[in-house]
Design a protein around this nucleic acid. Structure first.
Lengths: 270, 270
DNA sequence: ATGAACCCTCACCCGAGGTGAAAGTCAAGA
DNA sequence: TCTTGACTTTCACCTCGGGTGAGGGTTCAT
């Protein structure tokens, strides 16, 4: 029989871990001295501890390990699930490393890399208007859309945006649809829910005239990260200049071009 | 200006995170209402938040992010360090996935996979004896070594083991050296410190006659995990049968072959 | 005036342990 | 027999990056 420190050394863990596992009912000592409370472990217990540690290294939670080791739950199901989780983690890791490479290359030249954030977007209820309906004039499309929203007695619930299909087909012009988040549907409005999607997002600061460069940087980032960009992309006008009678919440208005903030959201596959 | 919930949505975080970052001094709202305590954020702050989130996604700790973003520490050094950490994590992840593949294949056939644990070993002070000095008789080598240790007035500090060079050279026989951990050096003993190394470890239960199969399983595991095994391997006799007058701590003694426990430690590269 | 949707602080919870205090146990050596 | 040092025990509190909920204040539209 081994005292706790000796056994912990054999297992490659700390005594505290063994005491915690004892308390959790996950791994109990072979013998506990009634008088002193000393925990004593046998060498035959070591393989069992090793199994627990192997599962733990796979990222299995302690309660789940207990279900497996103590209650005899289905090992294969858990292993399959752990594999899926590890594969996901690996993909995520690869993406981070690729982005890091770009940031480091930029840092080499004293610049800052693009702060791309991959996250889930969408799910908002929005009122939409196709820009083609007003001769391709985005500004006027927003104006008309706001007018309609006001007429319908609805309030904008967030910053406005646009869905852009950059390559709707060979030789075709980009198709743009503008939208404004709304709280509820109403007659006279084209209201639908934006699909939820995973997207690589990058902020563009300043004039819209320099946005193409930011758009390209996002594309390059995605390609480096091994992500396949999808259509349509989304633009979110987080801070924009507009006529006062666009009845958007005041907070999105700004006058100086340098203060414009636009988010480019590039949906990705997987 | 945005209230906290709206700004949190734009950043893709929860309001609690923004409040925590404020308290940490990591990211403060552009304006705080004196009367109500309401935090108000500007769109111009969003890029800064995104930078923080990008660093966080790389696994940078919040205090370190603060050093970078608030105190203007050296970004490149941190990025390099993060890259090293991520590369390490990726290697670890690949290893776990490979081991998981073996376990799943075994589970497919209703068996249990080998519970290989990769960890750092070594660093102990040991008294050694070359088995060649007693005509290759391992049992006798242990006996002689124990005798010497006793004569030197030293106590064994742990289970005995062996260093085995399985392929010392083309056409050569394995070379074995036995050792016993000791607390201190003494005259008449060959005492040295075992080198610290990263090793894939696997327990073998039962008779020594079936140990070769366990040894092979460990080798296969390493190859699948893309690890290069090194020499010499270490065997640790965690529970063994021996004559009573080997003055090892009583706890390592056992009589029945089924209760023998031996750890095979295969040093690996990286 | 009232309800809904915000906001504030404060306190506690999670996992998987690390750290340290106060006190008990045990074996070897003087 | 006494001391010393290396063990052990329990208990409580800390870590990190948040989540959750209570209790109470504010703002806005109806």
């Amino acid at each position: 029989m081994f005292q706790i420190a000796a056994f912990a050394r054999l297992g490659g863990v700390s005594p505290k871990v063994l005491r915690d596992y004892d308390e959790l009912g996950l791994f109990r000592p072979a013998w506990v001295d009634r008088l002193t409370g000393y925990r004593l472990y046998s060498a035959a217990q070591l393989p069992q501890l090793r199994r627990i540690l192997a599962l733990r290294d796979l990222g299995t939670g302690l309660p789940e390990i207990r279900a497996l080791v103590v209650d005899g739950a289905d090992l294969r199901a858990v292993l399959e699930q752990r594999r899926a989780a590890l594969v996901d983690a690996r993909r995520e890791l690869d993406r981070r490393l690729a982005g890091l490479g770009i940031s480091l290359a930029a840092a080499q030249e004293g610049q800052a890399g693009p702060d791309v954030v991959v996250r889930d977007i969408g799910g908002e209820l929005v009122a939409t208007m196709d820009v083609a309906r007003v001769d391709g004039d985005v500004g006027r499309a927003f104006y008309e859309l706001e007018l309609r929203i006001r007429d319908a007695g609805v309030r904008a619930a967030g910053p406005p945006g646009a869905l852009v299909r950059e390559r709707p087909g060979p030789g075709m012009q980009p198709e743009t649809e503008v939208f404004v988040p709304v709280g509820r549907s109403a007659t006279g409005l084209d209201v639908r829910r934006l699909p939820v999607a995973r997207a690589a997002t990058l902020l563009h600061e300043g004039s819209y005239e320099t946005m193409a460069a930011t758009r390209r940087a996002l594309d390059e980032w995605c390609i480096a990260a091994g992500l396949r960009p999808l259509e349509p992309i989304r633009l979110l006008y987080l801070q924009f200049g507009a006529e006062e009678d666009l009845r958007l919440p005041r907070q999105y208005l700004v006058t100086r071009a340098a203060e414009l903030v636009t988010e480019i959201q590039l949906p990705i596959d997987g």
